[in-house]
């Protein structure tokens, strides 16, 4: 453990709190971006197809 990550006697509590926050917020951000890209791409594909059909 490098020195800057040493937060006294409750070091593990601090690190777990930041770690879990990063993990959960990060997962939410990634999932949101993935859904966003997928939805936009899917819509573009279907719009293109419906233009071809009509």
């Amino acid at each position: 453990m490098p020195d800057i990550f040493d937060f006294g006697k409750n070091s593990s509590f601090v690190l777990i709190c930041y770690g879990v926050s990063i993990a959960i917020l990060g997962t939410m951000i990634l999932m949101t971006i993935r859904r966003r890209i997928r939805a936009a791409r899917n819509l573009a594909k279907i719009e293109q197809k419906s233009r071809d059909l009509s």
Binding site: T32, R36, A39, A40, N42, L43, I46, K49, S50
Partner: peptide
């Protein structure tokens, strides 16, 4: 972002339905 995705998904669904 989630709202936009939802709107896109709904619009895609409506287009498929119409087609």
């Amino acid at each position: 972002q989630q709202m936009q995705s939802e709107l896109d998904e709904r619009r895609a669904y409506a287009l498929v339905q119409r087609a």
